[in-house]
Nucleic acid binder design. Sequence first.
DNA 1: TTTTGACTATTATATTAAAAAAGTCAATAA
DNA 2: TTATTGACTTTTTTAATATAATAGTCAAAA
Lengths: 210, 210
Amino acid sequence: MDSKQELIIERAIQRFAHFGIQKTTMNEIADDLAMSKPSVYYYFPDKTSLIIAVVERIINEYLDRLSKIFEQSESISKSLEAMLELRIEFLERYFMLHLEDNTEQSLCREDVRSSIIQIRSNEINLLAGLLEKGKEQGLLSVSDSNHTAELFINTLTGIAMWVFSEQKKQLIPDMASFQSLLNKQKEISGIFLKGISCPDSDSGEQITRK
Amino acid sequence: MDSKQELIIERAIQRFAHFGIQKTTMNEIADDLAMSKPSVYYYFPDKTSLIIAVVERIINEYLDRLSKIFEQSESISKSLEAMLELRIEFLERYFMLHLEDNTEQSLCREDVRSSIIQIRSNEINLLAGLLEKGKEQGLLSVSDSNHTAELFINTLTGIAMWVFSEQKKQLIPDMASFQSLLNKQKEISGIFLKGISCPDSDSGEQITRK
DNA sequence: TTTTGACTATTATATTAAAAAAGTCAATAA
DNA sequence: TTATTGACTTTTTTAATATAATAGTCAAAA
């Protein structure tokens, strides 16, 4: 059975994802759970700590999914593709939290930021692991897996920021925008992979150019 | 000898680049040139048209420089590297105009935006030309040069947006930030180039991995 | 240990007044 | 006719302030 803390986090996620962090009050979360605000504050000393708990929950869920993808990796390119799709899934689901751009003020506080950066670094580690594996199998040619993984992920984030900055009229981008972003990321990913592959090897299946 | 219009544009560029568009008034520009505000309005019907003239001037100067770089291209990778350095030079010089991110409100008006997009498309054309040349020489393997050029430039812009969003405390990023951005872009560029090169050819000199 | 009503402190929002800047125009000079 | 300007109006920003909303506290109670 879920503890009170868990219930609070889950409700907070729901409201944050729908209305955004700023537009969600501690009172609303308390009311949702038919409890009083001081009760919520009994479990979380302040809103910031709740925000951090929510963000960590979300990112950890993403990381779990990602690590499973990488475990059952049949090829590097397939893994990357699945990773991109997973990223888009989470990006869409939690868009209102603005975990990738630095729009959301609540996430720009130094304590929250450092928490996010710290937990996010695991994504780089996981990807670096995949690259390292590819390296050992003689499929990839990278000197610093961690560095390359970081570069790749930052590129993905950059493209996302660029796509969304192009059309920031809408509060939430439409499905087509996410699809378009995914396509761009897949293209980049394909070129990137070919760029770091060993000339004499297929990384999984042949990487075909558009 | 410079016409009055030119003088106004040049002064506007100076003030825009230093104080930003919003913090520059038509009166200040007029005063700089020891003329009255209505005189300025005689040459430019409104501030927006002056902004457009300024932006076009800047981008055209960039495009001129870029086309010269591509003309005397000794290798594709050298050309790309010079392009990146040129981009950083302009990014730094005109950072206060925020030509790349969509921060500056004055540049988000539909008429201004479309003007920028239109003139900016020439950058893609120039790069596409370079890729096309490489393709004809059997150095590159791209199906749609224009599409690939667009993807590459958007990636560069995305990385820039990401880098600057990471540290938006400062009004103008310090030199180290620009240098760091340039390094990242060069890395990506290297991988990208290797990814679109023909397996059996050197594109200019060997592309070495870090 | 957990919960809450009633409270305070802080922050966000809405309102309005004042200031600044954009933009106009009739008159004037070259 | 082209270019310029002082004096003007209109629009937009900014600043100040009041108001409301929300974060956060605490003593009391279950």
